[in-house]
Design a binder for these strands. Structure first.
Lengths: 252, 252
DNA sequence: TGCCCGTTCGTACGTTGTACGAAGTACGCC
DNA sequence: GGCGTACTTCGTACAACGTACGAACGGGCA
């Protein structure tokens, strides 16, 4: 469904897991055959390789050589597992030090880091981050990305607004790219789809009533291979995003 | 789930349904108790009222007083039903005539129309439109929105790029707003969540290691009621989007 | 030593989209 | 006018999902 959500259940339990609170690992009982990191890594590897729909508690368990229900001693549920996966992915992001460089380069570097994150973990774009995983990875990421706006002359609220806006753009591009990948996985290429749908559309769509749509649609389709080229949309959009920030930052 | 996708199955059949091809309604057999529009309307009403996860073939059938499997004589499957819902929603959008007004007003009007669409149909933001429903609603919408860039001095490909970028922004905001609504539906308010998670976070997060995160996070949280205010993000972002376009359109 | 908390996992339930086939209906040809 | 057949309706069924429940067992602490 809608998209998978995270951050359900008890926030205290989730935070203890995210920060690997030592008091959260039990002292009594039989020795555990796994640990939390193994579960998170297996789930991430599965989602990376086959996408979020393939991320099943049963299949994660299978990868670990364990019965499905055993996972629930490590993780309260699937939503929390997604939180842990996301925070681990954030923690693993390389963070380029751009101190002293012009703001435009610094913000572009942040965008690029996030684009790479979503290339490595396409599922990450489709998990709702409205309630972000409040773990060490998210904290380090947020701190690092805020620093890109140091010395821009913006107040604190504006910096947060700008960062949210930039990340939202990258995320939106990544979602489209992930959708394109998913469509390719089970249904043929975008090109194939347009090749079969295009001529059919031409028979029903009246060019006189839709002059711009036919002309511009054809031009856009010819410019990039198919109807929507996520990579081109990112390159084009990022320039507009930076220009939009410039109007705020370099105001007279 | 990943997000629900649309446009699976035979494109020819889907296009015939979208354009209400008369040759697609059968001539023989018993009289049908419903028609396609009734199915689409019932599904839309259900999704509007209870969200996309509640949109079940069984529940749509229930609303229509029909057995679940009967729906499959009107619609090949759920994916095609989503296409039909989306195109119908597009067709029903009011389209403001802004001919002759400055481009900034015209593009802002397009953004506002799309914001209203997503307010009326929050589920629309979470359906992938990578392969858009190629129906009359989408065609009219695309034609109308392209017209907002008339006389801007952009070439055809640039116009399509700009429109895609603007609509992507509105969609991303709408997705966040829909996520917020979904979270409110089953799990308490955002404010409640932050009220319980915030103090816990303060105990584990080191302010010395994360000076900007703690300061700016607190400032942003105080400025709007919770961590993320979708309405504010839209207002702030739209101004940046228009500024970003201005740099391209009003270049010297 | 014995208690009891913890782990592991088999079974089971409710939910989803939809394939299949039986039963009944009405158009179009003769 | 009668009949074949294309069509609708819908009951049943299946495989997949997340996960609740409880039995069986293991090991740190009193």
């Amino acid at each position: 469904m809608s998209s998978d959500r995270s951050s359900a259940g008890d926030p205290a339990r989730t935070l203890a897991l995210l920060w690997r609170d030592p008091s959260a690992v039990p002292r009594r009982g039989p020795r555990r055959t796994l640990d939390l990191d193994a579960v998170v890594e297996a789930a991430t590897a599965l989602a990376d390789a086959e996408g979020l729909p393939a991320l099943t508690m049963r299949r994660v368990a299978e990868r670990l050589g364990v019965a499905p229900m055993s996972l629930y001693t490590y993780v309260p549920g699937k939503a929390e597992l997604l939180d842990l996966m996301l925070d681990a992915a954030y923690a693993a992001m390389p963070r380029q030090d751009t101190t002293g460089r012009p703001w435009r380069e610094r913000v572009a570097a942040v965008a690029e880091e996030n684009r790479r994150l979503h290339l490595a973990h396409p599922w990450a774009a489709t998990v709702s981050t409205l309630r972000p995983p409040l773990g060490p990875g998210q904290a380090a990421k947020y701190e690092h990305e805020l620093a890109a706006f140091d010395g821009c002359g913006l107040d604190d609220v504006e910096v947060d607004d700008c960062l949210t806006w930039v990340l939202g753009f990258v995320r939106a591009c990544a979602r489209d790219a992930a959708d394109a990948e998913a469509a390719r996985a089970d249904g043929g290429t975008d090109e194939q789809w347009w090749a079969s749908a295009g001529p059919l559309l031409a028979r029903v769509l009246d060019p006189a009533a839709h002059p711009r749509a036919t002309r511009i649609g054809a031009a856009a389709g010819a410019a990039h291979g198919s109807a929507h080229d996520p990579a081109h949309a990112y390159r084009f959009g990022l320039d507009r995003v930076l220009d939009g920030l410039a109007a705020l930052i370099e105001r007279p």
